[in-house]
């Protein structure tokens, strides 16, 4: 069984060129941050390493950090420019019964994250959901389609973005109350 601080050290030694961070001031458990374009390599290592053996991806969620510049458009609706979108991975090892939270942050204007579908099959639908709701593009995902919203939902419209604006009509049905 390993705690997050130990795993942080192991990762830093294994990948000396990659950037890692560890937030320990979080309320529940420390959050390890990593590079969004290297997360597939890191995840592969976390899953296969004999001392870590994270064989289970408990959850994967997309988050709009809303830490960019806030402005209002002509209609008074909020727009956010800059800042980041994040993906959180909650990992668990059945063998050692230890857990790890990994976070990758990616720029809002070009939110690209490597897919971990090849390592944990669970990630397939979770990544589709993160794409659907927050609009994070997962590179090398086998089938990055909307999963919850209708397939013909407006292109580039992701409802859980903090500056999301609902369309007025969908197939002739009025959407607002």
């Amino acid at each position: 069984m390993k705690i997050s601080e130990e795993i942080f050290e192991i990762l830093k030694n294994k990948f000396p060129d990659y950037k890692f961070g560890l937030e320990t001031e979080t309320p529940v458990e420390p959050v390890l941050s990593a590079d969004p374009l290297k997360i597939n390599e890191i995840a592969h290592f976390l899953a296969e390493n004999e001392d870590l053996f994270f064989d289970s991806l408990m959850n994967l969620s997309g988050v709009d950090d809303a830490n960019g510049e806030k402005s209002t458009d002509a209609d008074g609706a909020e727009i956010i420019t800059g800042g980041t979108l994040s993906v959180y991975y909650h990992l668990h090892s059945m063998k050692f019964n230890h857990k790890l939270t990994v976070k990758v942050s990616t720029p809002r204007e070009n939110p690209e994250v490597e897919s971990v579908e090849g390592i944990w099959k669970t990630a397939n639908w979770h990544e589709r959901e993160a794409y659907d709701m927050v609009g994070i593009i997962f590179l090398n995902h086998p089938d990055l389609e909307r999963i919850l919203m209708p397939y013909d939902w407006e292109e580039g419209s992701h409802p859980l973005r903090k500056d999301y604006k609902n369309p007025e009509f969908y197939h002739g049905m009025r959407v607002p109350y």
Partner: peptide, 20 residues
Amino acid sequence: NCGGPYWEHGYHVLKGIDRV
């Protein structure tokens, strides 16, 4: 009837079946 608890923030909910 009217969208219920989703009336304001339910981006995915039809606000009343009588619209259809």
